[in-house]
Write a protein that binds this DNA or RNA. Structure first.
Length: 968
RNA sequence: GCCCGGGUGGUGAAAUUGGUAGACACGCAAGACUUAAAAUUUUGUAGCCGUGAGGCUGUGCGGGUUCGAUUCCCGCCCCGGGCACCA
């Protein structure tokens, strides 16, 4: 018999089946896959006496292309984990199914001129065949398919429950329309402003659609994230997506009308600094007041220009601001009754907040840029302050306010700037020239006085005064008080330093004057606050930070935090929370989706289909091409559309929009628990037993779509009592991509796809599994390497070859064996498969070096390898004389005491450098370790002639001698 | 711009309550077996110096803390991902 094997050059050669090491993977796989099926090895019971473990993969979308080698990576991981958990005595549910509604399947069907239902059936068969070759332990009796009416009956049922609770509603707001896919899309389906599916730039199109009120769950979706044991990155992505921001709704009356403009702001504390207002061009008040606007033509033109722009053109940060004044429209600032001009500009988005802003140019970058361009007043109302990091304010000291000046003085002759190096308690600190503003002095007076005093220079001129007053808090420890220094900041010049007088000793004791170049200033300045001031002097920017209020009437002096509440209260606004998350656009104007189960009745309006009439079947039709009119192709199927109203029995029309691809996947995890139930979505007892999913595995690309939608639906089902947990998935692991050998994504387009079928046929399913788990950390993207894969196959051959050495009383290495059981056990549990395998390799390498191998030890090796290599281990297990499947075997236990017996290698350091090592029992005491360490041959020379001043011992690890030269 | 990851040999990587950096695997080099090749196997493999024993350097860069830093702190650079005129 011959088998084929891969060589280092990638060619496959025939090899004589002589060596005991090699094995015929094809035969073994065929034999056991058949046997597992016949003996129903992987069927799951609802035996509630056992502890359960629900392990779930994100189910695949069966595309026409079939699987590539990257797809099964996550499935292999869950398979390993599920087998491991089964061996731990758990009742494990590890199901698989198909997510088959939606655009990709429909587009594939259109392209290949087959009915989507036919295409899907064929693709599923192909996927299933590919998966089965890899030897997964799915219980196929629980297979589900989102396009199966028995499944989508319940998707529709959930929609009706949402509708009844007011969480599904019709809307006519403009939504994202993909002209190529001919359907409306949710925000989540966009990649920037481009259809995530086909790459076409989307348009805003007003149309009737169904929307789910996911925003009602925004806060819970956000808050419950904290307790989820998910990776920070996924949680952070969801937080960003939900985008909660706390602020206030404020109302600005429109002068000479009854109208008010509502604005949302996160900074109500800056209300006194609002110097104009900006509306989104689409704002309702713009069209409403068009007759009274003086420059209506100009305004209309601007609105039109804006509407033609794509969202990307409109919303790229840092773009030059544009806008138009609405002549004749004036609003009143409710805080100080000042009248403010109103602009429209595309930097204000209609869809966020109230679609209008109060512009505070002093404290907002964007408003600042706009105000600069259109010459609008800029008024500082907040003094942001920073705590001095070198000398921070102390708890418990009283705070004293001081008005100060900070000057950066330039010598025109040399171009150098004067800085002060401080002494005494401020040693190490370097600042600009600073001092207090005395009673009756203007800040400018103080500048002249201070420079004369501290630097003894006359004839200086002020060249710039910073627009802003800044502040820093620090501790004046000699006075036992904290100071809040409000600073006026200046740039000043002096022609020459030739006439510098004598600096008084008193000042010299406090600080030394140093001159530095312009480039050096930023390096030399130590307080962050002064660095910031210096930067502001170079380039003036808005001051976005919070701080102490000024120029704000009776609120001046308050902190931003207090002022937010009080100012909002004063003007009758309310503190609110705003989300970036928008309601979920749930209609698709396409054929291949779940029909939305409602009818439109002339007398009753929108009426949900009676639950006993579910499912509303997707009609079987010849032509299902999208219309592009905003109507679904279902609209033209007359005898399907016309129906009776479930309420009054009168004439009604069916809703013709279908659900998006994400509907089925938002709850499918529940259906595996009870896949055949016709009277309920899931049996209550079964749900209570199996929920939640304990371990969920899938790609990072679902972090903000599927994973948010599914959490939303699950929470809703929890609220109506349909499920018992408020979160669907406990532990979540994201699988890292397998890239092609060229480092790019695997894709037909690049011609770099590796098909698992080929790999399985040439190297075996077990080798594929081992390799994919051994590649690197599970969550990391790594390029496929056929070269590296050889190692996985060789490893299995070595395991197989060890049979020759089995002997009942053969050689053993009990310590290593127990270390291995422990490591593999813990690493599988934490999804660190790569290190689990490397430990198995260490054990196998050790066994290979022996003349014989103890039978019991080999048995344990095969057992703990079984989750990774189910076929070969099953074969070896049988050869060892076992009648039951190895996959029903109990996981071996390890003995911590035996592991403790391992001798430790103690490193010996001299002054932190390793100079040698010796072995000792881990129980060896400190005194003995020191003595042994001193005797190490390579260590001795380093101790000779030197005095040991300190000895550090870490038991079982290290001895470190700190030495110095002997005093003579 | 903001937020999350990450940066270790020729390659994939391992090690973090601070304790011998590079386990394991691939590749490579030399040897054994062979007429030869493949397969298998033995040895070596971070860099530099040295015949060797050994020495010096080394975990993106620069500082710091420590007897000791891949690991902790401060300041940067680069790569990947998310969000982004979000008020």
């Amino acid at each position: 018999m011959y088998i084929y094997r891969i060589t280092t050059t990638g060619f496959f050669t025939k090899r004589n089946w002589k060596s005991m090491k090699s094995f015929d993977h094809k035969e073994i796989e065929r034999k056991w896959q058949k046997k597992w099926q016949n003996e129903r090895t992987y069927e799951v019971s609802d035996d509630t006496h056992k502890k359960k473990c629900y392990v779930l993969d994100m189910f695949p979308y069966p595309s026409g292309e079939g699987l590539h080698v990257g797809h099964p990576k996550g499935y292999i991981a869950t398979d390993v984990y599920a087998r491991y958990m089964t061996m731990q005595g758990m009742n494990v549910l590890h199901p698989m199914g198909w997510d088959a509604f939606g655009l990709p399947a429909e587009n594939y069907a259109l392209k290949n001129k087959v009915h989507p239902a036919v295409a899907v059936k064929k693709n599923i068969a192909r996927f299933k065949e590919q998966l089965e070759k890899i030897g997964f332990n799915y219980d196929w009796k629980r297979e589900i398919n989102t396009t199966d009416p028995a499944f989508y009956k319940w998707t529709q049922w959930i929609f009706i429950q949402l509708f009844k609770k007011g969480l599904a509603y019709e809307s006519y707001e403009p939504i994202n329309w993909c002209p190529s896919c001919k359907t409306g899309l949710a925000n989540e389906d966009l990649d920037g402003n481009v259809c995530e599916r086909c790459g076409t730039v989307v348009e805003k199109k007003p149309m009737r659609q169904w929307v789910l009120r996911i925003t009602a769950y925004a806060d819970r979706l956000l808050q419950d994230l904290d307790a989820l044991p998910w990776s920070d990155s996924v949680k952070e992505m969801q937080r960003n997506w939900i985008g909660r921001s706390e602020g206030a709704l404020l109302r600005f009356p429109v002068v000479n009308t009854e109208d008010v403009v509502e604005v949302f702001t996160t900074r109500p504390d800056t209300l006194f600094g609002a110097t104009y207002m900006v509306l989104a061009p689409e704002h309702v008040l713009v069209s409403k007041h068009m007759p009274r606007i003086g420059n209506a033509d100009e305004v209309q033109t601007y609105i039109q220009t804006t509407s033609k722009k794509t969202d990307i053109e409109r919303t790229t940060a840092g773009k030059e601001k544009t806008g138009v004044l609405l002549e004749g429209l004036v609003v009143r600032n409710p805080a100080n009754n000042k009248e403010l001009p109103v602009y429209i500009s595309d930097y204000v988005l209609a869809g966020y907040g109230a679609g209008a802003i109060m512009a505070v140019p002093a404290h907002d970058e964007r408003d600042y840029a706009f105000a600069k361009k259109y010459n609008l007043p800029i008024e500082q109302v907040v003094i942001p302050y920073a705590d001095d990091t070198n000398n921070p304010p102390q708890e418990g000291y009283k705070e004293v306010k001081r008005e100060t000046v900070i000057v950066f003085l330039k010598n025109k002759e040399t171009g150098m700037y004067a800085l002060l190096d401080w002494h005494g308690t401020l040693e190490g600190i370097t600042t600009g020239i600073m001092g207090g503003v005395e009673e009756g002095q203007t800040p400018e007076d103080a500048v002249y006085a201070e420079i004369e005093e501290e630097v003894a220079l006359k004839g200086i001129s002020i060249t710039k005064k910073l627009r802003w007053i800044t502040a820093a808090r620090y501790c004046a420890s000699h006075k036992k008080e904290n100071r809040l220094a409000l600073s006026h900041v200046f740039l000043a010049e002096v022609d020459t330093c030739k006439n510098q007088g004598e600096i008084p000793d008193e000042e010299k004791a406090k600080h030394t004057l140093t001159w530095v170049t312009e480039q050096e200033v930023l390096e030399k300045l130590t307080p962050d606050h002064q660095k910031q001031i210096w930067r502001l002097l170079q380039e003036e920017e808005a001051l976005p930070g919070e701080g102490v209020l000024m120029n704000s009437g009776k609120f001046s002096g308050l902190s931003s935090e207090e002022a937010k509440k009080k100012i909002t209260e004063l003007v009758g606004g309310e503190l609110t929370i705003n989300y970036r998350l928008q309601d979920w656009v749930f209609s698709r104007q396409r054929y291949w989706g779940e029909p939305i189960p409602v009818v439109h009745c002339d007398s009753c309006g929108v009426v949900p289909v009676r639950e006993e009439d579910l499912p509303v079947l997707l009609p079987d039709v010849e032509s299902y091409e999208p219309t592009g009119t905003g109507e679904s192709p279902l609209a033209s199927i007359e005898d399907w559309v016309h129906t009776e109203c479930p309420k009054c029995g009168g004439k009604a029309k069916r809703e013709t929009n279908t659900m998006p691809q994400w509907a089925g996947s938002s709850w499918y995890h529940l259906r595996y628990i009870d896949p055949k139930n016709d009277t309920a979505l899931v049996d209550k007892n079964k749900e209570a037993y199996w929920s939640p999913v304990d371990v969920y595995v899938g790609g990072m690309e679902h972090a903000t779509r599927h994973l948010i939608y599914a959490r939303f639906w699950h929470k809703f089902l929890y609220d109506i009592g349909a499920v018992t947990t408020s979160e669907p998935y406990q532990k979540l692991y994201t699988v890292g991509l397998i890239l092609a050998q060229d480092g790019r994504k695997m894709s037909k387009r690049w011609g770099n796809v590796i098909n698992p079928d080929d790999v399985v046929s040439k190297m075996g399913a077990d080798a594929l599994r081992i390799y994919e788990m051994f590649m690197g950390p599970f969550g990391q993207a790594i390029a496929w390497s056929t070269d590296h894969m050889v190692g996985a196959r060789r490893f299995l051959e070595r395991v197989n070859g060890l049979q020759e050495k089995i002997d009942f009383a053969g050689e053993g290495n009990n310590i290593l064996l127990h270390q291995t059981i422990k490591k593999v056990d813990e690493d599988i549990a934490s999804f660190d498969f790569n290190t689990a395998i490397s430990q198995l390799m260490i054990l196998v390498n050790d066994m290979e070096k022996r003349a014989t191998v103890q039978r019991e030890e080999y048995k344990i090796l095969v057992t703990i390898l079984a989750p990774f290599a189910p076929h070969l281990t099953e074969e070896l297990w049988e050869k060892l004389g076992h009648k039951h499947s190895i996959h029903k075997e109990v996981w071996p236990t390890y003995d911590e005491k035996i592991i403790q017996e391992a001798v430790a290698t103690i490193a010996v350091q001299v002054n932190g450098k390793v100079r040698g090592s010796f072995t000792a029992l881990p129980t060896t005491g400190e005194v003995e370790l020191k003595e042994l360490a001193k005797q190490v041959v390579t260590v001795k020379p380093h101790l000779e002639g030197r005095e040991i001043v300190r000895e550090i011992v870490v038991l079982g690890k290290i001895v470190n001698f700190v030495t110095q030269e002997k005093n003579t």
